[in-house]
């Protein structure tokens, strides 16, 4: 058992708690962004715009518009959680509150801090995944038993963004680039990931480009879990996201160590 402990489980647990305790004081804002905002979108777009869509075009890829976008909102919420927890909050913990520096004065190592941070974000992504799975089932958009994997997919999507972005945030000195990343990265990503309409709506030349957008793979994955999909395509989407996570964690291991120790 002590062998296992020395591998870091106990320290990771502590690093996770450290994040959880902090979150306990700030959870209200996340309820707004992670629960109310997507629910509002679901109501306004799914029901309101959905009414217009079904009136004009009928079903989209065999689904009502509400069913079509419900999975997208799970994917975009997981993405926003991953992105939102990893730029400013990570830089703040290094630079302004210096809580990560405080953490490594205890037995925690930089790697523990990174793992604890990501584990905590993953925990929240899982919780959101459960909530959304229930909502998706509630509106009748869960047509496949694979929908049971939605909470895990939520974690995968969230970490695919959180890991590389946290690694990047550990590297920079100021937040000057963050608004630009937001504006030229996240906003277009949110809008052009076949989120609100099927990929067939894009002109032919744009479709291969959409394949390059990580969130597109997240949206496609969640949609496949709800409605079923071809195994090779699903596997490809999953691999893209997993590669992002692995690259992000390895990179973060380097940047966290440099920032906290060297």
């Amino acid at each position: 058992m002590s062998e296992v402990t020395s591998l870091g489980w106990s320290r990771w647990r502590r690093a996770w708690w450290f994040q959880a305790v902090y979150y306990a004081q700030t959870w209200r804002g996340s309820v707004v962004s992670s629960v109310l905002l997507p629910l509002g979108y679901l109501g306004a777009l799914g029901v309101g715009v959905g009414h217009l869509v079904s009136h004009h075009s009928g079903l989209i890829d065999g689904q009502t518009y509400l069913h079509f976008i419900a999975p997208s909102l799970l994917a975009t919420t997981a993405f926003q959680l991953g992105e939102g927890e990893s730029l400013w909050p990570v830089l703040a913990s290094f630079k302004w509150t210096r809580s990560f520096h405080a953490a490594v004065t205890t037995p925690l190592t930089p790697r523990d801090v990174l793992v604890g941070k990501l584990a905590w974000v993953a925990t929240r992504a899982f919780a959101i995944g459960v909530l959304y799975a229930l909502i998706i089932a509630g509106v009748g958009a869960a047509h496949s038993w694979w929908a049971l994997t939605l909470p895990l997919l939520s974690v995968v999507i969230c970490l695919a963004f959180a890991a590389p972005l946290a690694a990047y945030a550990a590297k920079v000195d100021t937040d000057i680039s963050f608004p630009l990343i937001y504006r030229f990265g996240f906003v277009p990503m949110f809008l052009f990931s076949a989120t609100f309409y099927p990929v067939s709506a894009y002109p032919g030349w744009l479709r291969p480009l959409v394949q390059l957008v990580p969130l597109y793979h997240g949206v496609a994955l969640v949609r496949a879990a709800c409605f079923g999909g071809a195994a090779p395509a699903v596997l490809a989407h999953l691999i893209v996201l997993l590669v992002l996570i692995v690259v992000g964690v390895l990179w973060g291991d380097v940047t966290f160590r440099r920032r906290l120790i060297d």
Binding site: V49, V53, P179
Partner: peptide, 29 residues
């Protein structure tokens, strides 16, 4: 000192309008 951020605000509407124009014009009629 942050003119790039300031200026980049002006392209944001382009993204939104393009995205809606491409996808939803066709679906909503």
């Amino acid at each position: 000192n942050q003119w790039l951020m300031f200026a980049s605000g002006f392209v944001e509407p382009l993204f939104y309008l393009l995205s809606i124009g491409i996808g939803l014009n066709h679906l909503v009629g």
